[in-house]
Design a protein around this nucleic acid. Structure first.
Length: 783
DNA sequence: GAGTTTGAAACT
DNA sequence: CAGTTTCAAACTC
């Protein structure tokens, strides 16, 4: 008994400590606590008592606890708790706390599969532990402060647990309701605790408190509970508030998905605690592995939150788009490596970045122009993409992964010159002058995704994640011959993610250059001559980009626009169908290839030819211009830039005329283009596509479906860019809801993805980004 | 690896 | 807007 009890006690203690820590933050200053602190102080005197020693012996934690308790009790102590727990163990606990919470919330985990069960068990454990404690104390016959402390700790723990449990329940139900029940539970809990403790040890536990405070003890306990409740509530509210936001951003479908995911109450908790870096890392890693299919897990939530942040940022930033004018932003915009973009999203997650995040978001947006905004907007929709979910990690993830690793490599190889590495990774990086690619890299790496770095460091390149990874690897190996590399890469499916060029005359400053066109700096693998598409020549690159954009705002926009269906569905069908949803903005002009070779951009993009195409003898396997694949044409018209623009305009006018405009204030495009949206959307893309859109889309969409990708190597890129309905994106950007509506034709596509909820955070973020990317330029006139 | 084909991009 | 040129990828051998 004792042994078992001890173990249980330890666990409880740990949980208590953790919970206490968690609470500490929230509860800090309650007067009651101050009282407790006093008590605890007195208790501390007992530390030297044999009982205390015994307890200490029982579990290493105890010593800490004693401290902890005092601290816990004392509001101030709470704050200081962390410092107090010098022992690694404590630290671990501390860290684990977040993790645990994450985990707890995580429905996926078997442990918490059933919250109720878990809660019940927990309670039992707690009670049991308390009893055991009491017993121990009783045995010693010495009412020790320690015992009290322990008891309190347990008590708090139990409270916390109860709260947690309740909170979980509540999460499911409603916050408001939760309050009462939680109180009842707590009360109950306390009562039980009091009973056991008081009966056995008058002094110990509450008894001590009572002795000191008399009747107040109960009150205190209650108050504490209340406080706890409040704290919980606060978290809850926060969560809720966040959740709604997320939900809002996302399409209704997403919301549903979110609910589903959240159904496991844990999610919220997870969400709330997502902040913990370590936990995030772990989760992210898991996510990568697990991928999106999983119901929204903590990670997803995190991502969602991030997305949310991004979105919000985007919304904020959207107006900022003008910033594009800034050379820097523009440069980065164009120059960022695709993969990096995603990372940015990930980086945003980290609160560190928060500052940067907002900035970054704005930054990105600015850089990306509308694209960023679009991304943000898109996310709502994008998040929905089921497909993305399915691919969860792949899309953005891949990009990120690929980029990072590459970056590493690149760094090694090239000095700065090949800014590819870093250019774009993180918004922060963007802000920072790309001068030192390494720095950018570092930042990006650090900020971006721990996972990536971790993955890289660990050498873990998830296959899933990566096609890209394989891709990169291939690249590295293949460096000798760029062409071959390209091919391999393309074959891998990630053509764009890791583009390489072989430019000889264009200096990589024209759209001929794939890297430049993708908004990425040339990297080592490139065999280009006289390359100016490097961080070193940022100014030149930026200027060139602007020039090109001035000519054609959509020049850097994704060529292929994808419908949401595509994503979510996965049209498992075959590659042929999948493309249907997506279309090439301008359409191809093939005359000899029959649209059956990569010469054809449509084919390359894995999309069917559309009305916009002027191809001759179209035999596009993804859909012929003539409409062989019915899906296309309808969509096609829409998907085409013109069509998209029209749709967007119509939608905007109908639904959110106002929103649209504000949402996409773009620089050039806007000015030139009457319809700001389209232009904006398009404009931003340039950066996006390169950034992550492409990768993200891949992952989400096509990549998953091997069938698709197989045919067109670039397809990935296009997909990425295409992602979802362009129109909707724009609209969405302005207002999530509107977005959905606007996308109406594709609405179903959009909604399903709720990827955010279901898909891991990364995915969601990715999705969003991707979507945003796709946000087509379509609105803008073809120019 | 070299050469050809192809079609987009750029230019007029 | 159409025609031509330039360019680099895609493709073939």
């Amino acid at each position: 008994m004792k042994v078992g009890g001890d173990s249980s006690v330890k666990e409880n203690k740990e949980s208590c400590v953790e919970s206490a820590k968690g609470k500490a933050v929230v509860v800090m200053d309650t007067p009651e606590r101050s009282k407790n602190s006093q008590i605890t102080t007195s208790v501390n005197t007992f530390e030297d008592s044999p009982v205390f020693n015994f307890l200490n012996n029982l579990s290493p934690i105890k010593p800490v606890k004693s401290i902890h308790i005092s601290q816990t009790i004392n509001p101030l102590s709470f704050a200081s708790l962390p410092s107090v727990f010098t022992s690694p163990h404590l630290n671990s606990l501390k860290e684990s706390r977040f993790l645990r919470r994450h985990q707890l919330p995580d429905p996926s985990k078997p442990e918490f599969a059933s919250d109720d069960a878990h809660t019940v068990d927990t309670r039992k454990d707690i009670i049991h532990a308390n009893n055991e404690l009491d017993e121990h104390q009783a045995n010693f016959d010495q009412p020790s402060s320690v015992g009290q402390v322990v008891g309190e700790a347990y008590f708090e723990c139990s409270k916390l647990v109860a709260e947690f449990e309740q909170s979980f329940k509540y999460d499911c139900s409603s916050p408001g309701s939760s309050l009462t029940p939680s109180c009842a539970l707590k009360t109950k809990h306390m009562a039980e605790y009091a009973r056991t403790s008081s009966a056995l040890i008058p002094f110990v536990e509450e008894a001590s408190l009572r002795g000191l405070f008399g009747s107040e003890v109960d009150l205190d306990g209650v108050s504490q509970i209340d406080q706890n409740k409040e704290a919980t509530r606060c978290e809850w509210e926060n969560l809720i508030s966040d959740a709604p936001d997320q939900l809002i951003f996302e399409s209704p479908n997403d919301a549903e998905s979110y609910k589903n995911s959240s159904i496991s109450n844990d999610m919220q908790h997870t969400y709330s605690f997502c902040e913990a870096d370590s936990s995030e890392k772990a989760e992210e890693e898991n996510e990568t592995e697990n991928q999106c299919t999983q119901p929204g897990e903590g990670s997803e939530l995190k991502e969602i939150s991030e997305t949310h942040d991004i979105i919000s940022g985007s919304s904020m930033t959207i107006p900022i788009e003008e910033v594009d004018n800034e050379p820097v932003s523009g440069l980065y915009r164009g120059m960022r490596r695709r993969c990096l973009v995603f990372e940015m999203v990930g980086s945003r997650r980290k609160r560190f970045d928060e500052n940067s995040v907002s900035d970054s978001s704005a930054f990105l947006q600015s850089d990306v122009n509308t694209s960023t905004s679009n991304e943000k907007i898109l996310p709502t929709k994008a998040g929905n993409d089921s497909s993305q979910r399915s691919l969860p990690g792949i899309g953005l993830h891949l990009n990120a992964l690929t980029t990072t690793p590459k970056d590493y490599k690149f760094l090694k190889h090239e000095a700065l010159g090949s800014g590819r590495l870093l250019i774009g990774p993180s918004p922060n990086a963007n802000f920072q002058p790309p001068t030192s690619g390494q720095e950018l890299l570092n930042n990006s790496l650090a900020v971006n995704s721990e996972r990536e770095t971790s993955a890289v460091e660990n050498g873990i390149l998830a296959e899933d994640a990566c096609q890209a990874s394989g891709y990169m690897i291939n690249e590295e190996f293949n460096q000798s011959s760029p062409k071959k590399k390209r091919r391999r890469l393309d074959q891998a499916g990630d053509g764009e993610a890791c583009k390489r060029c072989n430019c000889k005359k264009s200096k990589c400053l024209k759209l001929y250059c794939e890297c430049f066109a993708a908004g990425v700096y040339c990297v080592e693998p490139c065999a280009c001559i006289d390359c100016f598409n490097t961080p070193v020549h940022e100014d030149t690159v930026l200027a060139t980009r602007k020039q090109i954009e001035s000519r054609n705002p959509l020049a850097f926009a994704p060529k292929v626009i994808r419908s949401s269906d595509y994503l979510s569905e996965t049209r498992q069908d075959e590659s042929s169908k999948t493309p249907a949803s997506a279309r090439h903005k301008r359409g191809c002009n093939c005359k000899k290839s029959g649209c059956l070779k990569k010469y054809c951009e449509c084919y390359q993009g894995g999309v069917g030819c559309s009305v916009n195409c002027r191809c001759e003898g179209c035999k596009n396997a993804f859909g012929r211009k003539d409409g062989t694949e019915a899906e296309f044409e309808e969509d096609e018209t829409d998907t085409t830039e013109k069509g998209l623009q029209k749709l967007a305009i119509q939608n905007d006018l109908e639904q959110n005329p106002d929103s649209v405009l504000p949402a996409t204030p773009l620089k050039q495009g806007r000015q030139t283009i009457q319809h700001l949206f389209s232009s904006k959307n398009k404009l931003p893309r340039p950066s996006f596509p390169s950034i992550g859109s492409s990768s993200g889309s891949y992952a989400s969409h096509g990549f998953r479906k091997p069938s698709f990708f197989q045919p067109p190597a670039r397809f990935d890129k296009h997909l990425e860019t295409v992602l979802e309905d362009e129109m909707p994106d724009f609209l969405q950007a302005q207002s999530p809801i509107s977005c959905i509506k606007t996308s109406s034709p594709n609405s179903k596509r959009v909604s399903p993805p709720h990827s955010i909820g279901t898909s891991p955070s990364m995915r969601s973020s990715r999705k969003l980004i991707l979507q945003s990317i796709p946000a087509f330029p379509s609105l803008t006139p073809n120019n």
